[in-house]
Design a protein around this nucleic acid. Structure first.
Lengths: 154, 154
DNA sequence: TTCAACGTTTAATATGTGCTGAACAATCGC
DNA sequence: GCGATTGTTCAGCACATATTAAACGTTGAA
């Protein structure tokens, strides 16, 4: 398999994977393209490479920005916006997951407050325990990632 | 808030949460209803409580079965199928997540094999490292859950 | 055998969502 | 100011998916 084929395949697979994780296929493809690129890329370049309209690039890049995966950069004297992968993109993802566990914990805690009944209490407590363990695990992961920042060569 | 209101609210919220996690709203509602119920429930009971047709109950219960969250039970001399939450429903969820990380790792590993180019190698290695750390975290969580099986009272 | 009850499957419908293409706003060079 | 370039927004369309309603197969009782 040529270098080019490997790149296109990776872009396609990241698109599929993103679509399974709540993002859009285009967002995953943009992510992959920026991972593979040595330089930051303009939206025109992304649109040409991925065969996506600039409108879709705009919206998808915005969601990747809010997820702190992609950041917008500028070249002096150049009106175009450029995009690149952020410095530590994955800590933000784990932090987002932790926030979601917070929400889940709230739901279960409120249910435990208001619901009476024998085995329901038991099973809700099990569910709450699961969410708490999962959250602790995510917090530990985040700490490990921050302790070992994988200092990006450059 | 009455006991009944708290139950309905929990069912509704679990439905929303499930819809955000790749399941359907109905699947989340069935899950919640079985969590709250002291006894196992028939599909007729579920359909009546959740206002869902028996067809939808059938398909959604099947997906919950394949996820090892719900199991099908029978009463002697009763032709109806009954459903209940499985014994340790959450270990199976973590195991599923671990399998998904396996897949992600494969994608990145193959990309690392085939892609040449300066910073791409670095960033792909970072991504691989992230997936590996995340997977280790999930494996640790699974071990913790199995070590502390939260022996369901009864 | 016949009928009733139950679970499954499937076609049709409804609903949500992503993408496109065009209109719009903003900015820079001339 | 004017035209060109760029990013954003939005209506319309296309597609995927969940739900329903009905048909079907199966099973058990009379």
């Amino acid at each position: 398999m040529t270098n080019e084929q490997a790149r296109l395949q990776f872009i396609e697979r990241m698109g599929q994977q993103a679509a399974n994780d709540g993002l859009t296929r285009s967002a995953g493809q943009i992510w992959a393209a920026l991972l593979l690129s040595d330089e930051m890329m303009s939206s025109a370049e992304l649109a040409e490479l991925l065969q996506i309209t600039k409108g879709s690039i705009s919206t998808n890049v915005r969601t990747l920005e809010t997820l702190h995966i992609v950041e917008r950069r500028f070249k002096p004297g150049d009106r175009q916006d450029y995009y690149a992968i952020q410095e530590n993109p994955y800590t933000a993802l784990v932090e987002g997951q932790i926030r979601r566990f917070d929400n889940a914990n709230k739901i279960v805690a409120e249910a435990l407050d208001g619901v009476r009944g024998g085995s329901a209490q038991v099973k809700l407590t099990e569910l709450a325990r699961f969410y708490q363990l999962y959250q602790q695990s995510a917090v530990g992961l985040l700490a490990a990632m921050k302790a070992d920042p994988e200092p990006g060569s450059s």
